[in-house]
Amino acid sequence: MTKSSKAKTSKAAPKAAAAPAAPAKAESTKLGKTHIVEAIADKAGLSKKQAAEVFDAFGDIVVDALKGGKSVGLPGLGTFSVTSTAERQGVRPGTSERITIPAGKKVRFKIASNLKGNL
């Protein structure tokens, strides 16, 4: 066998043993999109595809409202709003150089008082 044929056969050969399975992780503290979609599907009696469409539509509505300068109130959870930030001075890490951070906007969330009391 030549070197080139050895290389071809070794790549095509199946692996002898699969890698050992990773140990099970502890339950994550983050609730991701897939978990939320599954919960919506279960509670509303929808398919996962329909629940994903509802979730995506809700996100689009919230983003569009915030871009339009409106606040979004979610009863029992809180309120999203957009606030302006002023131009300010900062320090570049590592060089200690003074820099000007430009004015901008940020999204704020104010938690509902009944949720805050129940945490």
Rank of each mutant, 00 (worst) to 15 (best):
K3P: 02
A13F: 04
A112H: 05
G45F: 02
K30M: 00
K25G: 08
P20R: 03
A103L: 04
P23D: 04
S4E: 14
G69R: 14
A21G: 03
A24W: 01
E27A: 13
K43N: 12
R92V: 08
I101L: 09
E97L: 09
T2I: 14
V91K: 12
P93E: 06
G59C: 13
K116P: 01
L119I: 15
S113T: 14
V91E: 06
A112S: 14
G117C: 01
G104E: 05
F58W: 13
A16R: 14
K67F: 04
K33I: 00
K49V: 09
K33R: 14
A41C: 05
I99D: 08
E87M: 11
V82N: 01
K33Q: 08
Q89E: 15
K43L: 09
F80K: 07
P93A: 11
S5R: 13
D42G: 00
A12E: 10
V37G: 02
N114L: 12
I101W: 08
K105C: 00
T83L: 07
K25V: 08
G117A: 13
T2P: 04
G45Y: 03
K106R: 15
A57Y: 12
A65Y: 01
A17L: 10
L119H: 11
A24G: 02
V72C: 04
S81R: 03
E38D: 07
K110P: 01
E27W: 00
G90H: 05
F55E: 03
A65F: 04
S28G: 10
V63G: 03
A7I: 15
V63S: 15
L77W: 14
F109K: 07
T2R: 13
G32T: 05
E53S: 11
T85W: 06
K116C: 08
A7D: 09
G104F: 08
A112G: 10
I36R: 01
A65E: 03
N118I: 09
Q50F: 03
A12I: 05
A51G: 00
T100K: 10
R98H: 07
P14W: 02
T9F: 09
T34P: 03
G68N: 09
A13E: 00
E53V: 09
E97F: 04
K105R: 11
A17H: 15
I99K: 01
V63C: 11
A26C: 05
V91F: 07
N114C: 09
V62C: 06
E27V: 11
T29V: 09
G78E: 00
P23F: 02
K15V: 08
R108I: 04
E38H: 11
T79V: 15
A13T: 12
K33P: 03
T95H: 08
A44D: 07
S47H: 08
G90C: 05
A24R: 08
T79D: 03
V91R: 14
L74M: 14
R92S: 13
T95S: 13
F58G: 11
K105L: 00
A112R: 02
R98Y: 02
S4W: 05
F58S: 11
A26W: 02
S84F: 07
K116S: 15
E27M: 03
V54P: 01
P102K: 12
T85G: 09
I101T: 11
R88F: 04
V107Y: 09
T29F: 11
V107M: 07
M1A: 12
G32H: 08
G59I: 06
A39Y: 12
I40K: 01
G94E: 07
V37H: 02
S84Q: 14
K8N: 14
A18P: 04
S47K: 06
P23K: 13
